[in-house]
């Protein structure tokens, strides 16, 4: 599978050194919305210049090249074990060649593996699909914004959040309010709602793969996403957390069925440098 490995190295390069067009467009709109010459406006100006500079000089947009997360849709019959080998090998090569920052640290020894591979590193989610197309989505998820994420178990009395969609809305605003500027706003928020902790965390992260221009298939969620985006931008946190109109550029919500007793909400925060890309094989 030599060719696939090289394809993944190229995917790494594209994802680390550029910003997807929908995100860049949203940042440009945010820039136009801020008062020219304000801290928020000038910061977004530098952010846009940084995006251009990274693309032109093929350098990582952010020094934190993140934790690599693969979401892979695999046609029946293709070996997951073999695929994983290609991902790991591509990760080693990409780390040295681009370069990426080595981010995989051993919990016991505190030693950095030096090549972004280790136990559970990179993160890989496989899903078997019908048809013959292998689809690989790669996200490079920065640590600062990953730390800003939160999980809730509804009802949450301190938020006056009940077990309904309005409760979900309160959780998302709470996450942003508590994150302030620490995870590099303007943010994209991925939200997962359902009945088991492990599932909602992955579901939330998976929402970050959606383009900002995509429309949720569930009408009720479209309304909440729009309302949340409007309300989050009223918080006044702004780019860098130093005040301004643009605190978020997108909210995407995914739902699973839940157990009658359980109502979990996971909010995954993504920085303005939301880096994702797809390879179709």
């Amino acid at each position: 599978m030599l060719k696939l490995r090289d394809g993944i190295v190229e995917l790494y390069k594209k994802v680390a050194t550029s910003i997807p067009p929908d995100i860049e467009e949203a940042l440009k709109s945010a820039y136009k919305n801020e008062i020219s010459g304000s801290v928020a406006g000038s910061s977004l100006g530098i952010i846009l210049e940084n995006i251009n500079l990274a693309r032109k000089t093929v350098r990582p947009v952010c020094q934190d090249t993140g934790i690599p997360v693969f979401f892979v849709r695999v046609p029946a019959g293709l070996s997951h074990v073999e695929l994983k080998k290609s991902f790991v090998e591509a990760t080693r090569i990409a780390t040295e060649r681009i370069p990426l920052r080595a981010n995989a640290v051993d919990i016991i020894t505190e030693k950095n593996s030096g090549d972004n591979t280790g136990t559970g590193f990179p993160v890989i989610y496989f899903e078997e699909v019908q048809g013959g197309t292998l689809t690989i989505d790669l996200m490079l998820k920065g640590g600062g914004c990953e730390n800003a994420g939160r999980i809730y178990k509804l009802p949450a009395e301190e938020l006056n959040a009940q077990r309904d969609l309005d409760g979900v809305r309160k959780c998302v605003i709470d996450t942003v309010q508590k994150a302030q500027g620490r995870g590099c706003p303007p943010y994209v928020l991925g939200v997962g709602v359902g009945g088991s902790v492990d599932q909602v965390a992955v579901l939330a992260k998976r929402q970050l793969l959606c383009k900002l221009t995509d429309t949720n298939r569930i009408g009720e969620l479209v309304k909440i996403e729009e309302r949340l985006l409007r309300e989050i931008n009223q918080l006044g946190i702004g780019p860098l957390g130093l005040g301004g109109e643009s605190t978020a550029i997108g909210v995407k919500i995914g739902v699973n069925h839940r157990h009658p007793a359980s109502y979990f909400v996971d909010v995954s925060v993504s920085c303005w440098a939301t880096r994702r890309g797809r390879l179709i094989w």
Partner: peptide, 13 residues
Amino acid sequence: FNTIGGAAVYLAD
């Protein structure tokens, strides 16, 4: 001093 989060290439220069 707060500098610009994520502007890694701009700041490296």
